[in-house]
Design a protein around this nucleic acid. Structure first.
Ligand SMILES: [Zn+2]
Ligand SMILES: [Zn+2]
Ligand SMILES: [Zn+2]
Ligand SMILES: [Zn+2]
Lengths: 173, 173
DNA sequence: ACTGGTATTGATACTCAATACCGGGATTAT
DNA sequence: ATAATCCCGGTATTGAGTATCAATACCAGT
């Protein structure tokens, strides 16, 4: 985490931006966890150290963190966006459970190189890619079995949020 | 297109919903093209046939079309969501140009089977997946070459919308 | 230390997409 | 015909994210 804050500091300096305590405190909070989080959750965490920190500043700093490529913006669901700290965390993608909303990570060698190649073939220069898998997690698969797809009156695809931020703390590691 | 409307009709009946003219007209409009569209664009198209059609009904019917799995909801960018008619259109994924915003489609055999397998290994039952590639399209690649990534004052990643709905008509095929 | 100039911050107001709600109208069943 | 539903479309509301702006913090030079 020392390392990440160093990188962010360097980024700010290169941009001619000031290294303020507020910014660094937001960054530290982000770097202190590898959980996915929303801007509002982050704001809440930050306010435990400095209750005066405004929502706007959190949004702006988050923007800087994304530009510096130390944080990634995910687009996994509607509602508030999710972000994650990516330094020191193996590049990965996400599986989203349609029933409980839990988000699971995975990574695979072939899935990393292929997209880039396919793009190249079309004259497209890929800089990044994101893979999103929808379905049912281990716990929910048994329940959901038997009736998927089609048009039953069951309404499976709900619950698309919640169930993934546990405590009110970023939680180390 | 005859075919798709038939499927939608069947879906409505199975659900005990009424097959109304408004609903079918919205569905027909959707099925008459394979372009990506926003709810408001769709509403505009539909109003060329029946100017009294309300925005709400378009949203609701679009919801039904998604539930029936005849239409897919994409999550490619911020702002208004994009939708596309998927029946009779080879399953594919998307490349989004960071400069001009153009969206290009692609498909690849290996990329179809792999995600499902990877998910299975983790006890996850995949029902669908989406792959999104960011980068620079053929036209924009030369321009963008030389300076990507890092933290220059260049601000490359703009223009994230526009440039993909040409006419005010759905346009056959 | 003082001063002038710039960057940062946070409250408020605003935009835009999506949803909730409701009353009137159409359709179906009795 | 009458009652019970379902459908429709306008309006109000929510919710996430952005723009604005005055006050403050910071910095460099004196
Ligand atoms: Zn689950
Ligand atoms: Zn992740
Ligand atoms: Zn382009
Ligand atoms: Zn497409």
């Amino acid at each position: 985490m020392q390392y990440e804050t160093g990188l962010f500091r360097k980024f700010l300096e290169k941009r001619g931006l000031r290294v303020t305590q507020t910014r660094m405190q937001i960054a530290e909070t982000v770097f202190s966890t590898h959980k996915h989080f929303t801007p509002d959750e982050l704001a809440e965490w930050v306010r435990k150290k400095d209750s005066s920190t405004g929502r706007m500043t959190v949004y702006r700093t988050l923007g800087l963190l994304v530009e510096s490529e130390l944080v990634e913006e995910l687009t996994l669901r509607k509602g508030q966006n999710l972000y994650e700290h990516v330094v020191g965390h193996k590049h990965h993608h996400h599986m989203i459970c349609l029933r409980c909303g839990r988000i699971q990570e995975f990574s695979n060698e072939a899935l990393e190189s292929l997209p880039r190649q396919v793009a190249r073939q079309k004259g497209f220069t890929a800089t990044s890619h994101a893979i999103k898998i929808h379905g049912f997690c281990k716990a929910c698969s048994p329940i959901a079995n038997g009736h998927r797809g089609g048009g039953e009156g069951e309404t499976v695809g709900v619950a698309s949020s919640r169930a993934q931020v546990g405590s009110g703390e970023p939680s180390e590691t």
